[in-house]
Every structure is written in C-alpha cells, then in structure tokens.
Design a protein around this nucleic acid. Structure first.
Length: 796
DNA sequence: GAGCACTGC
C-alpha cells in the first residue's frame, strides 16, 4: 500500500525556480574546494546577504548585517514587514546580545554545553545562530534541534519559520511521529522529537545528514536524550565535522561538561571539560514560602492554602500540583464547596472561585478549560473572581498556563519505578527534586511577580529533597532501549559510556528478555529477527508477536491488538455514570479474553468510522469525526481510538516494508486459536497459573501471587492465562488477560519452559503433566511442532 | 471490585 505517499504530510521533492536560479553563479573563494553540486544554495554576488560568510567562522557583526539585509538570504525574497517586526522583539531577548560570544565559542569548539532559564530564548535563537554560522544548506546538511515533546517541536518550528520569514516545512521544518513536516533538499533547520532522532540513528549510525545537533531540554533527562548523549559523545570522536550543543535549564551543567570533555588520551592530553555558555533567564521574581511544621495530609493542607490565598491575597490565578486523577477530582470538589461557602458568607469581601482539574487522560475539551478566564465579580464593585487549576505534573513542563501568580506545591509526584527483580514497573508517589520544586515555583512568575507556597519545611527542602529528579534511564525497563542499541551496533552495553549508567540488573533483565525472544543470540548479538523487531516502534514482546503472527495466519488481527495495546486505556468511567459505563463495556466484552475485547472494540470503531484511507490522520484528536458519537455513546475515549488508528497505520507500513504479510483466517474458531498462539509467542514470559480455588494466580517463574484485575472480562478462571501487564497497586494484579494452553508454552517457548531448569512448584508439576501427555500422544518421541516455523521464530 | 504521573518511536 502506498497510500501514505499521497498524504498531505509527506511533501515530496519538487524542483522550484528559485532553487534553479541559485545554482548559477559562484564567486566566493571558499567554494573552490566544494564539489560542484554542493554549490547550489550559495550567493551569487557581493550584494548577497551572506557574501563573505565562511562556514563556522562567521562573526556576530556579519549575522546582524544579514538579518537586516533587504533580502532573505535563504529564499532570496525581500524580507516581509512581519519579519522586521519580529526581529525587533528578538533583539530584546537576553541571548540576542550574546550572539558574538556564542558564535566565537561555536567556531572554536566541537561540543558546547549551554545553560539558560526559561524565557532566555535559547530554543528559538541558538539554532538560528548556528544556521547562520554553519550554513548547512551549502553542504546539503541539516541542523537538528531535539525536543522531548511533539507539541514543542511543532510550535517552536512554526515560531522559528516565522522569525526566519520562511514557510514552515520548507527551510525550517519539524519531524515527529506520524508527521514529517520537512522537504528533502530544502529543509536545513529541523526541530524534532528526541525519539525521532534516536530512531534515525539506528539506521544511519553516523547521522551523516546533520552538521550540527542540538539537544534541547537535556536536563529533563528523557530516555531518548540520555541514549543520544551516549551515542553522540562517541560519534563526535569519529565525525570531527559534527558539532554538538547540549542545552539545559538547570545549573547541573558541571556533570554535562565533564561528560562531554574532549581529549585525546592517546596523545596524553588531560581531559578538559566542554565549554559552558550561560544565558540569563528572563522571568519575574517568585517569592517562596515554606511551612513551619511538616504536614501529615498534603491534600488537606493544599486545600487550606488555596482558601487562604483566596481570602487574603491579591487577584491572580492559582496552580496546585497534586499526584493523580482521583486526588485531583476529590480536591476540586472540596475546594468548590468551601469556596462557595466563603462566597455566600461574605460576597462583598471574597470573589467567586472557579476550580479546574488538569491531567492527561482528561478529554481535550475539558483540558481546554484551564485557559478560560477567571470568573467576573459576583456583582459590580465586588472582588474579582479567581481561577484555580489543580494539576498533575503535566503543568510542570508539558502545559503552560499564563496568568498563574500563585503556586501551591505539596512536593510530591507520581512516577514509575522499575523493579528489575520482579520485572515490574509501578507507579509510586514520591517526593520531588529541588530542580522540580524550582520549576514548579517558576510557573508563578511567567506574567508578573508571583508567590509559591511549599507545603514542606525549608529544612526538608534543603536536606531531604534530591538535587535532580532521577533520570528515566535509571527508573525504566530498558528492553526497548537495549534492542535499539543492539541495532545501532553497540556490542558491550556494560561498558557503554552513559551519563548515568543503569543498574546492571536492569540491563541483564533486558538482555535476558531479548534472548528469550530470540532477538539476541546467546552471544548477545542481534539476530535477523531482532533486526526486524527493532524497526517497529513497539516493545519487544509486541514486536515479536506481530512479526510471528503471519505464521498463524492472524496478522491482521494481531496488528489491531498490538495497536490497541500501545495506546492508553480506552475505557471511560465518568464518576456519575459508572453503571452505564459498565453496561456499555459489557456489551463489547468478549469472554474469551481481554485481547479479544480490544480487537472487538477496534473493529466496531472502525466500522462506525468514516474512513479516509489515503490520509494519515494528524495527531490532533478527531473531534469532528462521525465516530465521535459512537465512541462517546459507548463510554470510550475517541482520542485513544484515533491514536490506535494512527498506530495501526504506521505499523502496517512497517510490516509492508519488511514483508510481514497481513493475513487473516476465515474460520472463527481457528482464527481465535491462532491469535492466542501468536500472543503466546510474544508474551510467554507473562503467564500465570491458577493456584487453589480462590482465584489467585502465581506468575510463572517469578512466583508472584496475583489476582485478575477487576476490569478483566473473562467469564471463567482458566488454569493458564497470559497477561499484558502486571500492576502493583493496593494488591498485585494482572491486567488484560487471555487464556492460553500450556502445550503452546512448551511448543513455542521451549527454552523458557525447559522443565529441567524450571523452578520447583505446582506450576512445574502441571507443566510436567502436560509434557508427559504430549510425549504419550507422540509415542514417546520428542514433541514436534505442528506447524513449521521459520528458524528466526524459534527460540534457538 | 479497581485506577492510568508523563513522555516518546
């Protein structure tokens, strides 16, 4: 299928008259050593705005002159009036006055570490300065600037395109999952997600398209940025022509500087830290208050603080950080009740209060309410109203709300922690770091001076809080990352130079899983199967299951199930309509297993959908689509379903690229068996065996006592179940569960289920009985696979 | 009979 070629998001190469013109004349001496075909974009006469620019030796004086030039050097068109207007505001940015220093440092160094608080303009300006000096368009290369989030990559690219007076997607573009807004041979400044650059590195280990790579928001320490830092540090030694800039918002730069110290140890050089470039921030002062005594109940304390602010402080909106949906909804209810009481008791001295919850699973329309204006006074001459946003950590970095003057910070967040011993990621409430506390406080000073109320003591802040949040690489399951690094060609992970090295046990768990899945052989080398697995934007278990599924002739169904397992929860449960939501869910439930229910939900959704097969939907939720009613009526998240559709389309393209056939079985009974067999091939390490009659299960090998999650739709309690997720909340649960046959475990995962090395227990005895039975039916011979599997799919 | 902090490919 080549449908995506017609998508509006895939802009093909089109020769333009402008590009042809720019190829004509060359009079710049430094061009002499360039191959002729690279001369294209360079300037034709002394009137050219970039006349005399020597790549990477450009001075601030020259750039300012070019910026003020009548012609845009990159389009050869006259600058617009809007350009000049924006240029005025750019000149007021702190970083703009440091252009000369920056360009000098850039000329002299391969790697630079930059630090600057928000508001300094580094994300928009530095890549432009780099472009003027590096002149990537003259070498057929690009400058890349990575961002941890898609929205940031898109909006910054738009802003910079405006600043440079070019059309977004031409000279300046962005690249995020599902959307490539660049034009090959035209785009030379590209904003992209860090994950996107990491993926590119897997197929082009030299990242040869790029002349300069800027890692922005490096202090956030996302998994992708951390791995990129490791790769780039090494790459810098091989590619002396590659320049790297690491930009961070906190002062923890010494670590970055020494990590990126460049020295030639062979030549006996001493390591010298990478140079640091500082940009002053430009935010308003925020006054910080601490409590005197520790508070046992931070939610209650937060509510009291909000009401105190409301009664006693000047007008201005409030932002409270809590940890999760339930806590937030609960707090909103209580604040509303209390605030209404205050208003009724004394309307002349207290204004009305509007309380808005904010968390990521909230439907987008409700999220938008955070931008509503605060309520008006209850009557003329009375105090103005106030808006209170009660949010998760999403408001710390992902969403910015203007007009916040007061921040209430109880000092906690929910974050996942990976326990490699039991191979479980769980969501835990934990204290924030100092850096995070500082970031939260900063949210009060975006529009004018503000106040931050910390619901912990100053002593606790000083002594108990960690300096920085633990980077993701130390808190996550690394199976995916390790597969990616293997694909990249990293052989010795234990000696890989990470900024913060993950726990050896975490790496071991990842290697073990990939070995059982036959993505890595016993020497830890990538197998052919592993190479294809790495091409899919999926966890290894899902990738394996999908690639194997054509063997069972159910890849069409497994594709859908995979997409549904890669998106957030689709089930909505509005607190006041729980019964109705349960009923709707029951209508869609397939008793054979939760994976089948997910398949059923998607198929129903797809049928209800007006489909545009030739258009890849953008990441924007499809709120106008016909199916919105169907999703809504069935208490399903339209946003999640639209995401599933996107993911499915992307996976389908990858399957086609790597010749993974998309097929389906006509016969329903056979099809359902095939689906469960394919599931087994990916998830044989996530199987539980029923123990006793009380519905408790024991996970295979790890021997964790678990229960079926209450959301599970099975109508019986099968002896053997496969699960997608182990969740550790009040009790350990397994979620998204389907029955499997023990024969399949022995057949499709013989290494993992090798009984000679299996831990003793009831599970082993049950498997032993199955093995004996199988031998019996085979006349004493070793079991033989019913279906001939490709070598790559067998475990060794 | 319970929950999904938040990103990303």
């Amino acid at each position: 299928m080549s449908a995506h070629m017609h998508s509006k998001f895939y802009i093909g190469y089109r020769p333009s008259p402008r590009r042809l013109n720019s190829c004509m004349m060359v009079d710049n001496p430094y061009l002499a050593h360039l191959p002729p075909f690279q001369r294209g974009a360079v300037h034709s006469s002394s009137s050219s705005p970039l006349f005399g620019f020597l790549p990477r030796k450009v001075k601030g004086e020259q750039v300012r002159k070019a910026m003020n030039h009548q012609l845009n050097p990159f389009t050869k068109q006259p600058h617009s009036a809007q350009y000049r207007k924006i240029l005025e505001t750019r000149r007021a940015l702190p970083v703009f006055s440091q252009m000369d220093d920056f360009l000098e440092l850039f000329s002299k160094n391969q790697i630079i570490v930059m630090v600057g608080e928000t508001g300094a303009g580094k994300t928009t300006q530095i890549p432009q300065f780099v472009t003027y000096s590096d002149l990537p368009h003259t070498k057929g290369k690009l400058v890349a600037c990575t961002q941890p989030r898609r929205v940031a990559a898109m909006s910054v690219a738009q802003r910079v395109a405006d600043e440079m007076d070019v059309q977004l997607g031409k000279q300046v573009g962005y690249s995020i999952r599902f959307e490539d807004m660049t034009e090959s041979e035209t785009t030379f400044l590209k904003y992209m997600t860090d994950g996107m650059l990491l993926r590119e590195a897997m197929s082009d280990t030299e990242l040869s398209r790029y002349s300069t790579i800027i890692l922005d928001e490096a202090h956030e320490r996302t998994l992708a940025t951390d791995i990129l830092m490791g790769l780039l540090k090494n790459l810098a030694k091989r590619r002396k022509d590659l320049k790297i800039i690491v930009m961070s918002a906190t002062l923890d730069t010494v670590k970055f500087q020494s990590y990126f110290s460049l020295h030639d140890s062979a030549a006996g050089e001493k390591p010298s830290p990478a140079p640091l470039f500082k940009v002053p921030g430009r935010t308003h002062p925020v006054e910080v208050f601490y409590i005197q005594e520790p508070e046992p109940d931070y939610v209650e304390a937060a509510i009291r603080t909000v009401l105190m602010i409301h009664r006693a402080e000047d007008p201005g909106d409030i932002l409270i950080f809590l940890t999760g949906e339930e806590e937030i909804e609960d707090a909103c209810r209580k604040i509303k009740i209390e605030a209404d009481d205050l208003l009724n008791a004394d309307p002349s001295s207290v204004g009305p209060l509007m309380c808005v919850p904010l968390y990521s699973s909230l439907p987008l329309q409700q999220q938008q309410r955070i931008f509503d204006a605060a309520p008006k006074p209850s009557q003329a001459g009375y105090p103005p109203g106030r808006k209170v946003v009660v949010s998760t950590n999403i408001a710390e970095t992902s969403l910015t709300i203007d007009g916040i003057v007061y921040v209430v910070d109880p000092g906690f967040l929910k974050q996942t922690v990976y326990n490699p011993r039991i191979r479980v990621e769980s969501s835990l409430v934990s204290p924030i770091s100092k850096a995070s506390a500082q970031q939260r406080a900063g949210r009060a000073g975006r529009t004018r001076p503000g106040k931050c109320f910390r619901l912990y003591t100053e002593k606790d802040f000083m002594l108990e809080l960690e300096e920085q949040t633990h980077p993701e690489i130390l808190r996550s399951n690394l199976a995916n990352a390790v597969l990616g690094l293997a694909k990249y060609g990293i052989k010795d992970l234990v000696r890989f130079d990470f900024l913060d090295a993950p726990a050896p046990e975490t790496l071991m768990r990842a290697l073990e899983l990939l070995n059982y899945l036959a993505a890595l052989n016993d020497e830890g080398e990538l197998t052919a199967l592993g190479g294809v697995m790495a091409e899919f934007p999926l966890d290894p278990q899902l990738a394996k299951m999908l690639i194997v599924s054509p063997e069972f002739r159910v890849s069409n169904e497994i594709l859908t199930i995979t997409a549904m397992l890669s998106i957030p929860n689709v089930w909505l449960r509005p607190p006041n309509q729980r019964a109705a939501a349960e009923q709707a869910k029951a209508m869609l439930t397939v008793p054979e297993g939760d994976h089948f229910t997910l398949l059923n939900v998607y198929n129903n959704y797809a049928q209800s959908t007006y489909s545009e097969p030739d258009v890849i939907q953008s990441m924007t939720p499809l709120v106008d689509k016909d199916d919105r009613n169907w999703a809504w009526n069935n208490f399903l998240s339209a946003r999640a379903l639209a995401q599933a559709e996107n993911v499915r389309a992307q996976l389908l393209r990858t399957m086609e690229k790597y010749d993974v056939d998309v097929i389906s079985l006509e016969d329903e009974r056979k099809r359902n068996i095939g689906i469960r067999q394919a599931l087994t091939c990916g998830f044989f390490m996530q199987v539980a065996h029923k123990e006793g009659e009380k519905g408790s299960y024991l996970t295979v090998k790890d021997n964790q006592v678990v229960a079926l999650h209450p959301s599970c739709g099975l109508d019986t309690q099968p002896e053997w179940v496969l699960f997608n997720e182990f969740v550790l909340t009040k009790r350990p649960y397994i979620r998204t569960v389907t029955e499997v046959k023990p024969e399949w475990l022995l057949e499709y995962a013989p290494v993992y289920f090798d009984l000679a090395s299996f831990p003793d227990g009831e599970t082993k005895r049950a498997l032993q009985r199955v093995a004996n039975r199988r031998r019996g039916t085979n006349g004493g011979k070793e079991p033989r696979p019913k279906k001939k599997l490709k070598k790559s799919q067998m475990n060794h």
